[in-house]
Amino acid sequence: MKVRIRFSKYGALKFIGHLDVMRYFQKAIRRSGIPIAYSEGFSPHQIMSFAAPLSVGHTSEGEYMDIELADLPKEESYPPKEGAYSPQAGLSESGLRDALQAVMVDGISILDVQFLPAGEKNAMASVAAASYLISFREGTILPSDWQEKLTAFYGQEQIPVIKKTKKGEKQMDLKENIYELELKENGTIYMLLNASSGGNIKPSFVLETFFESIGYELPAFSLMIHRLETYKNAGNQTLTCSANQLIDQTPARSASQLIGEEERRLVPLIWER
């Protein structure tokens, strides 16, 4: 059985890179006693997949990982730790959440655990978009009219950019990958960006492109980036009742757009209950 886990990353833990977060969770799962499934072969590894890597320095409340559970183990030969997952308690979403939360350090919190329906794509393959809240580090000096200029920048029909990829450089339209951009009253910026494996856009890339377009060089390390949510594209698939409600009632956490022939309906990787 597959389980999706939503977690947050904050405080000092923002300095831990993606690979180390994976290692952290491998060890955390072992400490928790949760019966995770292992791959076959001489050096078996835990079956675990992460949605979208978060850059070092960023915080988040919308990180996701999937794990696959093994069959319930036979009687434990060694007594489990206090607060650890107990097979006797059976499998429940809240039981798994509590067992995992009990072994976390300050800086990563388990926000939600959900069993995945059969046939659901894994977290990494599902990622379509991510939303961010960006603020400027204290003391950052910005051009006085940057907000109007940003609105104008986003108001363009097209924003042609050159994006560096592993294979070289490629010409693309940044605009069609920015699904939403909004200036908040407190001077922070909200963005919903393409985060799919083929078209991932970093929020820093958007702002660097913007400031470059107005001839201003943004000082290094001036952006503080917080990921709010990671989305999948529900497309034309029939949504369950709860998901439909979500789209109707909480537009801030979802987005539905019609682009050409294809409908894009973004829903969080875990639907709110």
């Binding site: 491998q26 060890k27 955390a28 799962i29 072992r30 400490r31 060694y78």
Partner: peptide, 10 residues
């Protein structure tokens, strides 16, 4: 067993 349980080392 204690140390493996407390650390999660593999």
């Amino acid at each position: 067993m204690e140390m493996l349980g407390n650390t999660g080392h593999e």
